[in-house]
Write a protein that binds this DNA or RNA. Structure first.
Ligand SMILES: [Zn+2]
Ligand SMILES: [Zn+2]
Length: 733
DNA sequence: AGCACGCCGACT
DNA sequence: GTCGGCGTGCTC
């Protein structure tokens, strides 16, 4: 009497389709649920698949349909909430369903491993009898602590909290505590030892705005450096914590500092799960499972980078996206999703509050706030008596600049050091010099595989292309005319370091860039004198801008930030301003208002003046006007098709053909730019081209992309061409 | 994406 | 004669 049924399976393949399979012999319909994984035969191989649907209308002839090999899960690994999110990713980013759904899973689950965490010993409070521990203060302390931790802790948590196996062993002997094996608990234990800080007027207003509305309540919290955003976050989530819910805190790629974690840990009696890039696959799976199996017994705070937004969280009740403007929220390969946007979607679908916090909000979020999609809350005062660093512009045009930095600025450094303070020189360019050139014939050190110059490095000496990683020994003569007068042109971190060391022999010069911080704790080692408060000079790249506190840094000098002023990328100015503010924020974080000086050849640039004389907010509004005038995002929506090939012109031809094919499907309100060569056409041996698709209406763009999906995936005849689609691209690269 | 299948050049 | 190059097409 049972009617035959089929399983619609999604595979982790770049195939924009699903595949139907028969169930196992002797199995029944209710053995299968959407969101379970199965192993299936696929061609000659075996693949992990995800059940998308259970149905009785196969899309091919039934005799071609094979049965699955086995069912991996007893219960779904993806809830219907996450399945819907995966389908949403497919609809929005137009990548194959399978790939979208599989990116929601931790790597080990994608590979078909069973959804089991490693096991670890846990301790449970069995019985409270204070008399039995009267003479044992450590045992008493453990019981008290255990009571606070909801009567259960893992072995590791107990050790972290300073208890020894012998203390616990004695309690087990007294039968006050029992031990059992359970899923590995990698969470840090929060302990509410710290009270909420007093809020200033602005913070109070902010908290009121965040809490006054129930349900989906997106808030853009625009707060200048040092205005106490974190305290607002902490107080905003406290009710979710009291209700033992889950809270998701997204942070930038390198923004997870011990200080941040400690703030959460010392405030809340909650489990704190960290999902950062340092975890291995098994640890990540453990954390994911722990979040996905959360029970309403103890609050859980999940702190993680971009991909943490895909964590299964059945009791999710609040989301925070810190430094929402940060570029690391945008995935730059595969499914090019934006973690911040996904966070907003999740909050909307769950009907919960979300805070997007930043000192320098992205124009996208600012626009959403201005059109009242988000509540806009500003914190303009620095907490305490710290005064903001003034942004000064230093005109370099009529100055002598020997090694990339003006003499007068060197004098400022000298004064700073004499006062016993520290100085920071920021230059977003590692190596000794960006170019090696020959004054006799004009030869320059170009990379063979890229339209770029090879950077000159001295420590150790070599030429290095930062775009394709090609390395080459340093020539002593011009390869072209054999002149021996070849020389470095321009300055990078190494050259500045050398020059500053020469000029300030009595002080340490510390270089922080990707090359100097290779080892595991190299960065912290190097920064030791800075933390000790010694007068010294820091020279470095963006690495210095994030997540560090340098209380003794009282002078910040920024070199070469003007390279973004005239970029082809319309977002360059926005990004530059955010970077400038972030770097400037390193100065005088605690002390007597520091100085932040921008050395530039374009001292007259009106937008730079706006930033210096007004603030980021004023600049952002001006940039929004420009975007509006030129119909650029956030006033228009874009998708970018990138293509590349080892053969010149082939990628462009491919995009031309694509454009021809999709043009007939074009409706009103869709326009194209290109195909054009990418800003750096040749990169790592591949010639790159791009085609922009634009519309003023998101829905029209989405509709059009949906219609051209089959054409994108079908276009044949260019087998050396690789292509990708980027919805809401964040740069032109 | 894999992987098989198939059709042409060069090599024991 | 056959080994292997990669262009083409399919996977329920
Ligand atoms: Zn020469
Ligand atoms: Zn290169």
């Amino acid at each position: 009497m049972s009617t035959p049924f089929y399983l619609r399976i999604a595979l982790d393949k770049p195939l924009n389709q699903t595949f139907d399979y028969e169930p196992l012999a002797n199995s029944r319909m209710h053995d299968y649920q959407i969101g379970m994984r199965v192993n299936v035969p696929f061609g000659q191989r075996s693949e992990v698949g995800l059940i998308l649907d259970i149905h009785n209308q196969p899309d091919i002839a039934p005799h071609k349909i094979k049965p699955i090999k086995e069912r991996i899960d007893d219960s779904p690994v993806l809830s219907s909430e996450l399945m819907k999110l995966g389908l949403w990713l497919h609809e929005y980013y137009h990548q194959p369903v399978g790939e979208c759904l599989f990116t929601l899973l931790p790597v080990l689950l994608r590979k078909g491993q069973t959804a089991k965490a490693t096991q670890e010993k846990h301790y449970c409070l069995e019985h409270l009898d204070w008399q039995k521990v009267e003479r044992a203060p450590r045992q008493k302390a453990f019981l008290e602590w255990l009571q606070k931790q909801n009567h259960k802790v893992s072995h590791k948590q107990a050790l972290d909290a300073g208890f020894t196996p012998s203390i616990i062993g004695q309690l087990i002997d007294k039968q006050l505590v029992s031990e059992l094996w359970q899923d590995n608990f990698n969470a840090l234990c929060g302990d509410s030892v710290e009270q909420a800080l007093a809020l200033n007027k602005e913070q109070e207003q902010a908290l009121k705005g965040i809490s006054e509305k129930n349900g989906f309540n997106p808030v853009l919290l625009e707060g200048v450096t040092g205005s106490g955003k974190t305290e607002v976050y902490l107080q905003a989530i406290s009710s979710a914590v009291t209700q033992r819910k889950q809270v998701l805190v997204l942070i930038p790629e390198i923004g997870l500092t011990p200080q941040t974690v400690q703030r959460f840990q010392q405030r809340f009696n909650a489990d704190i799960l960290l999902l950062h890039s340092g975890l291995n696959d098994q640890q990540r799976l453990n954390a994911w499972l722990q979040a996905s199996r959360h029970k309403n017994e103890k609050a859980q705070i999940i702190i993680g980078t971009r991909s943490a937004v895909f964590t299964e969280m059945p009791n999710l009740d609040f989301i925070i996206v810190d430094e929402e403007h940060d570029a690391s929220y945008k995935q730059q390969e595969g499914i090019r999703y934006h973690g911040r946007d996904i966070a907003v979607i999740r909050a909307a679908k769950r009907n919960i509050p979300i805070i997007l916090g930043s000192a320098t909000p992205s124009l996208d979020s600012l626009h959403n706030a201005l059109v009242k999609k988000y509540q806009h809350i500003r914190l303009t005062q620095r907490a305490g008596d710290a005064s903001p660093a003034n942004l000064e512009i230093y005109d370099i045009r009529k100055q002598s600049v020997e090694h990339g930095i003006a003499d007068e600025l060197l004098q400022h450094i000298e004064e700073t050091l004499e006062q016993g303070d520290q100085a920071l020189v920021f230059i977003n360019r590692r190596g000794f010099a960006p170019t090696l050139y020959c004054p006799d014939c004009g030869w320059i050190s170009e990379c063979k595989r890229c339209d770029a110059r090879m950077t000159l490095h001295q420590k150790p000496a070599h030429l290095h292309c930062h775009h394709c990683d090609h390395k080459q020994t340093l020539p002593h003569q011009c390869p072209n005319c054999l002149s021996t007068r070849i020389q470095a042109m321009g300055a990078g971190t190494e050259r500045l370091e050398t020059h500053l060391e020469y000029r300030f022999r009595r002080h340490k010069v510390i270089r922080i860039d990707r090359d100097s911080t290779q080892g595991k704790d190299a960065m912290e080692q190097l920064l030791q004198p800075v933390h000790n408060g010694e007068p010294c000079i820091l020279v470095g790249t963006q690495m210095l801008a994030k997540g560090h506190h340098f209380p003794k840094v009282n002078l910040v000098i920024m070199l070469n930030v003007d390279s973004g002023f005239f970029s082809a990328d319309f977002r360059a100015m926005e990004k530059t301003a955010q970077l400038i503010l972030q770097v400037a924020g390193r100065a005088g974080r605690e002390s007597h208002g520091g100085r932040a000086i921008i050395q530039t050849e374009f001292a007259d640039h009106p937008l730079l003046h706006l930033l210096s004389e007004e603030n980021y907010h004023a600049l952002a509004l001006a940039l929004l006007e420009e975007r509006k005038l030129h119909s650029l995002p956030p006033y228009a929506h874009q998708a970018l098709v990138r293509a590349d090939s080892p053969n010149p012109k082939e990628a462009e031809q491919y995009l031309h053909r694509l454009l021809q094919n999709i043009k007939p499907l074009t409706e009103n309100g869709i326009s194209f730019i290109g195909p054009l060569p990418s800003p750096m056409e040749l990169r790592a041996g591949r010639f790159r081209s791009q085609l922009w698709i634009r519309s003023h209406q998101r829905s029209r763009l989405q509709n059009f992309l949906k219609n051209i999906e089959p054409l994108l995936y079908q276009q044949k005849g260019f087998n050396k061409v690789r292509w990708s689609l980027d919805v809401d691209p964040s740069d032109h690269i």
